[in-house]
Design a protein around this nucleic acid. Structure first.
Lengths: 205, 205
DNA sequence: GTCTATATCGCGATAGAC
DNA sequence: GTCTATCGCGATATAGAC
């Protein structure tokens, strides 16, 4: 079934195994998630992942900087999209609403396969090293958002705080979504932002 | 001078070198900060640090889980203090004010030696791995705060959001303090919380 | 791809501190 | 003596260099 049980043929690829870098990266990502879920993150070596994906360990590190990055590669690189989405929101829209619109415009890529999203979440929550990486990604995103808000005229301090609020809301929505298969992501996001507005007393933000 | 140039005597400690775990840990912390500042985090090996502290590399890892933890060990373990400080605030004090009081009651341990705090901050900001760890520590603190707020009667969601706001404010104040030697920490903290209140439209929080 | 540094952890023996 | 911290040595695996 698929390439999951493929063993690297001596001297190269197994017959018919696609050689494209993107394909290999995909298989590595899948293999990593599977193995992390099956045996746990620590007991899974980079070599294990590479073997299941039908490549060598060296190839693994060519695609991903480290063992953690495998689960976050998809999220990275979307920061430009996010900045663009925020810039596209008219300047007279208040900050929270602007973030809400931008976030709604870029739903999670894994929406297609919820089972994967759930597994991924479970693995991350069970692994301190992965939670750390997730926080770092979140912080980077908050930085991007803050910069975009500053471009909309907010002061540095304001921009930073609103960005924290907004990304916290986003994180909450994503978390809830990937924990509950029967949830509608967009609705969750809208509800979360409404709750933040009410809680924080900024109905016009 | 001091134990910095001490080499572990073959078969054991150099004569008179204190064997207490706490002393060794202190020396390791100092040595690590020095070396990280001098050569950078990546070019500093655990063996380097251990050698400067007069112990073996194995001992380093007995005291600290990894190379990053050295710079955060002091911050850890104060979570109980923080929880206690929050519990000590009367229940009728609103959440932001409660956090402000609790934080003011536990100023940073390095306040005594600002040079160290500045160096530490510079090293952390220059090292992605250390920033990641710092974020993780912050998140853990936010978790502790959130739990304390829930104990004060806030709903889970409220508690989490306020905790994020409060720890963000704390982080901002600490950051500003450890970047500017002439700043008064307590005043910074108060000013930061005031700014958050104003910005967020919750003058009574 | 191969080679290498080195981070990290397990284990048994040893040696101050109380 | 019993602790507890350290040593010394080895094993595995990550990540970067060549």
């Amino acid at each position: 079934m698929s390439w999951s049980d493929a063993t690297p043929a001596s001297g190269g690829y197994a017959a018919g195994m696609p050689r494209s870098g993107a394909e290999a990266r995909d298989r590595l990502e899948r293999a990593a998630l599977e193995l992390y879920a099956e045996q746990g993150y620590d007991r899974t070596t980079a070599a294990d992942i590479a073997a299941r994906a039908g490549v060598t360990a060296r190839t693994f590190f060519r695609h991903f900087a480290d063992k953690r990055e495998v689960l976050f590669h998809l999220e990275t690189g979307r920061h430009e999209d996010l900045a663009r989405a925020l810039a596209a929101v008219p300047d007279d829209v208040p900050p929270l609403a602007a973030m809400e619109q931008a976030f709604r415009a870029m739903p999670p890529h894994l929406e297609a396969d919820r089972r994967l999203a759930e597994t991924r979440r479970r693995v991350i929550e069970a692994t301190p090293a992965l939670r750390e990486r997730e926080l770092a990604k979140m912080a980077r995103m908050a930085g991007v958002v803050a910069e975009a808000l500053r471009a909309r005229g907010l002061a540095e301090w304001e921009a930073g705080l609103f960005a924290q609020l907004g990304t916290a809301a986003l994180g909450h929505a994503v978390h809830a979504w990937s924990s509950d298969p029967s949830a509608d992501y967009d609705a969750l996001l809208v509800r979360t932002f409404a709750a933040v507005r009410e809680l924080v007393g900024l109905d016009d933000a």
